[in-house]
Computed example of a mutant assay.
Amino acid sequence: MTGPSLRQLHAHHAIHQGGLSGAIAKTEEVEELLEAKEIEVARQAADHLIEYWETRIISHADAEEDGLIPEVIHQFHALLVVNSIHSRDEERLLLAEA
């Protein structure tokens, strides 16, 4: 079961945008520190960047794979079944009218 934020488009989009902007900012920080030849500080910033990816980006992707994606697939399959039944019934009605 997923949290409500994964199923609400606006909230889910905000999660993705927040993750992206955080990753960009942390990556730029590492790049700037490397350009300034602050190697040890850049190494620490890189460690923070990796931790960010593990705790924010990868954990969110895992939540999507474990909850949201199977839910969406199940709902999509249910819609396909309903559509198939509807199409079959509609075809019967059209043939009965002919």
Rank of each mutant, 00 (worst) to 15 (best):
Q8M: 06
L6R: 04
R43M: 07
G18L: 06
E71P: 01
R88W: 11
E71I: 03
D62L: 10
R56P: 00
T27F: 12
I50M: 09
T55M: 06
S84W: 00
I39F: 14
H13A: 05
E54N: 15
G19P: 01
I58T: 08
P4V: 03
L94E: 15
D66K: 14
E35Q: 15
L33T: 04
D89V: 08
H12N: 15
A42Q: 02
S84L: 05
I57R: 02
Y52A: 02
W53G: 07
E31W: 03
R92C: 03
S87A: 15
L95D: 14
H12R: 12
G19E: 10
H77R: 12
H86N: 12
A61E: 07
S21T: 12
A96D: 11
Q75N: 12
S84C: 05
L20R: 14
S84R: 10
L94Y: 08
L9D: 05
L93P: 01
L6C: 03
L49V: 04
A96P: 00
P4L: 03
I85D: 09
Q75L: 13
H60W: 04
A45S: 08
H10A: 15
H48P: 00
E32C: 09
A96Q: 14
E40I: 11
A23D: 01
E40M: 09
L49W: 02
W53M: 14
A42S: 05
A45F: 02
E90C: 07
N83S: 13
E65G: 11
A36W: 03
K26N: 10
G22S: 07
I69M: 10
A23P: 01
A36H: 05
A36Y: 03
E35K: 15
E71M: 13
I15R: 08
A63C: 05
L49I: 01
R88V: 09
M1F: 06
G19C: 03
E64I: 05
E54I: 08
F76K: 04
E38C: 04
L6S: 06
P70N: 02
A14L: 03
E28K: 11
H16C: 10
G19R: 04
L34W: 01
D47S: 10
G18Y: 02
T27R: 09
G67C: 05
A46E: 10
L79Q: 12
D47G: 11
R56Q: 14
F76D: 05
V72T: 10
I15L: 15
I69R: 09
H60L: 11
I73C: 03
A78M: 04
E54S: 11
L68M: 09
H12S: 12
E71Q: 14
E32F: 06
G22F: 06
I57C: 04
K26R: 15
V81Y: 01
E90V: 07
E91T: 13
L20M: 12
E71K: 08
L49E: 05
A14D: 08
H10D: 15
E64Q: 06
A98R: 15
H10L: 12
V30A: 04
L80V: 00
D89T: 06
A42M: 02
